[in-house]
């Protein structure tokens, strides 16, 4: 039953991706990437990764669409047709894909209970995180408590990046100039 939903959703994603690649109008391509982000957020939600889905919807469908439109206001709105031969890029893509597929051959089987990722700390989190932390969502308790210092570091990095961007844009300085 849910297989049918998965197939329909993934075919929607495939159609959107192909259309975004083929489209000459850059504005239309930006709109299609927004649709693709919405679909992948829905897909993450079906896979029970709610936090990833939130991030995808906020960053993919929200912010990056706005950033792409901001870029479009600086460039032309039509894709330039390239005259270069496309054989070498195709070859590079196929080689890279082949190497990546070769890399997956060493991985443990799908849903193998003896795989390293299922025998390391995951059983401890699944069995004891409810009693130790008291948060119903295991992912949240891992991020906010077991790896709390790691998350604090990440937040500090993002805060520093935001402050740096604000200083580079000079938003505060421009307001002061206006007052003088």
């Amino acid at each position: 039953m849910s297989t049918l939903i998965d197939i329909l959703l993934l075919s929607l994603m495939g159609i959107t991706a192909l259309a975004a690649v083929r489209m000459k109008s850059l504005f239309g391509a930006v709109m299609l990437t927004g649709i693709f982000s919405l679909l992948s957020a829905l897909w993450f939600l079906i896979l029970d990764a709610v936090d990833v889905s939130f991030t995808e919807a906020a960053v993919g469908a929200g912010i990056s669409t706005v950033l792409m439109l901001g870029t479009l206001s600086l460039t032309k709105s039509e894709e330039k047709t390239s005259n270069h031969s496309q054989i070498i890029p195709l070859f590079v893509v196929f080689v890279t894909g082949g190497v990546l597929i070769y890399g997956t051959l060493d991985m443990p089987d799908f849903a193998d209970p003896l795989a390293p990722i299922h025998t390391h700390v995951a059983p401890h989190y699944i069995e004891k995180s409810g009693a130790e932390i008291g948060v119903p969502n295991i992912v949240t308790s891992v991020l906010a408590s077991y790896r709390g210092f790691d998350t604090l570091g990440e937040v500090t990095v993002i805060f520093t990046a935001g402050v740096g961007v604000l200083l580079l844009l000079g938003i505060g300085r421009r307001r002061e100039d206006g007052d003088e």
Partner: peptide
């Protein structure tokens, strides 16, 4: 999931407002 759906509705609204502002003004 209903809460998540509501948040998505808000994100969708903001995105549409941004695109329409792009049409009217030309930049942000």
């Amino acid at each position: 999931f209903v809460d998540i759906a509501l948040t998505y509705a808000l994100i969708n609204f903001i995105g549409t407002i941004a695109v329409l502002k792009f049409f009217v003004v030309g930049d942000f």
